[in-house]
Design a protein around this nucleic acid. Sequence first.
DNA 1: TACGATGGTGAACGTTCGTTCATGACTTGC
DNA 2: GCAAGTCATGAACGAACGTTCACCATCGTA
Lengths: 199, 199
Amino acid sequence: MPAANPERDGDYLDRLRDYYAENRRIPSFQRIAALMGFASKAAASKLVDRLAAAGFVERTPDDDAWVPTTRFFERPLAEVAVRAGGPDMIEGTQGELFLIDQYLVRQPSRTVMVPVKGDSMIDAGIHEGDLVVVERAKAAKAGDFVVAIVDNEFTLKELGLEKGRFILKPCNPAYPVIRPQGELEVFGVVTGLVRRYRD
Amino acid sequence: MPAANPERDGDYLDRLRDYYAENRRIPSFQRIAALMGFASKAAASKLVDRLAAAGFVERTPDDDAWVPTTRFFERPLAEVAVRAGGPDMIEGTQGELFLIDQYLVRQPSRTVMVPVKGDSMIDAGIHEGDLVVVERAKAAKAGDFVVAIVDNEFTLKELGLEKGRFILKPCNPAYPVIRPQGELEVFGVVTGLVRRYRD
DNA sequence: TACGATGGTGAACGTTCGTTCATGACTTGC
DNA sequence: GCAAGTCATGAACGAACGTTCACCATCGTA
C-alpha cells in the first residue's frame, strides 16, 4: 500500500543495523519481516538478497547464514564536508567492539600479542611499547618480521636469507645482524601491529 | 576413547574461536559437533552451556541464538622474557588476557579509524596503509598527532605551536610545515595505530 | 495506454534446528 | 569396590527455518 520508494532499502538497512547493534546478529527472515513490517518471509528474503547485492551482507564461508560485511558498519559523516575523492573512513558504531580485533587476528588460537622492547626495528616503524600480533606456527619466509627465540629470549627481527641460511636482520643500523648457528627457532610471524598513544 | 580432561573445554573454545574468526558466527549445534568431533548434537548443546556458564557466550536479547561475549575475544599477552622450557608456557598459565579494541578505543561513539595516505609521517613510524585510531572532539595539545582538515581534505600531522599559533608539522623532512591562516580545524586526535602485514 | 521491472503477499514444502531423555563410559573420592 | 558426578551417545519430537512459486500492486518509461 505505501508508495514505492527506491531509497526505502536504506531505511530497512538502518533498522537492520539497529537490530544488529543490539543482538550482534542478522536475524531470521521471519524476524526481519516483523522488524520491517512485512507480512511474508519471502519479502524479507528478497530484501536480504538486495542488501547482499549492494554489499552490506554476505553468506558465511560455510553458507550457513548471513553476516554483515564491513560496509554494513560504515557510517556517513555528517558534520564534515567531504568532497568526492576525499578520504573514506570507517567509523565504529556504538557497541561495535570487535572490528579491530577481526581486522588483525585470523586464527585466534594461534595468535599472541607480544610487547616490543628496544628500538632495533625502528626503521620499520616498530617502536618500543608497541604490541605486535604474532601468529605462531606459521610458515615464515624471507622478508617477514618474525619473533625468534635467541638465548631464551624473544627477539623481533626481519627474517633474511644469506647463503641458504636464515639470518635475523634488525631494522636499525646500530644493531648487528644475527647469524644463528644451528637451527633458528622461530616462535611466530608478525601479522600485525598495535600502538597506543598516551594522553 | 579419550581420557576425561577438565581443561578440554579450553581446546574446544579455541576451535570455536577459530571458527568464529572465519565465519563471524557461532554455528549450530550440529556444526559444533562436527567441529569438535562429537557424534551428537546434545554434546554440543552441553558444551555451549558450559561455555555460557564460564562467560564466553551468551544468548541474544531476543533469545534467538548464541553470540560471543567480550571475554570470547580476549587474547593472551605474552610475557616478556621466556625461559627455557619453551614458549608453550605462555599459553594459558601466565600472561594476561586483554582486548585489542578495548586497548585502543576508549569512546567508541567518538572514535574513527582513518587510513593513512602518503609518507609524510614516516619518521613517526606511521606508514601508508596503516589505520590510525582517531578520537574526535578531543582537546588537542602541541605534540599530539592530529587529523586536521586543510582544503577540505584530511591531513595527518603533528600539532605544533609557533608564536602562539598552531601549526601542522609533518614527520618527514621532505614535506613543508603547514601554517594555516585563520582557524585551524582539527578533526580529532590520534590515540592509536593499527597495522596489518600482508601474507 | 501498455509494458516490464520492482517490491510485497500468502501458502506450501522439505529441511534443519534445538530440546529432551534414557543410556553408557569414564573419573574421582569415600 | 561402590556411589556420585561428568561427559558423550543416539534416537525422537515439534518448532522454526529457508525456499519456492503463483499472484498482485505500484512505478517509470516507452
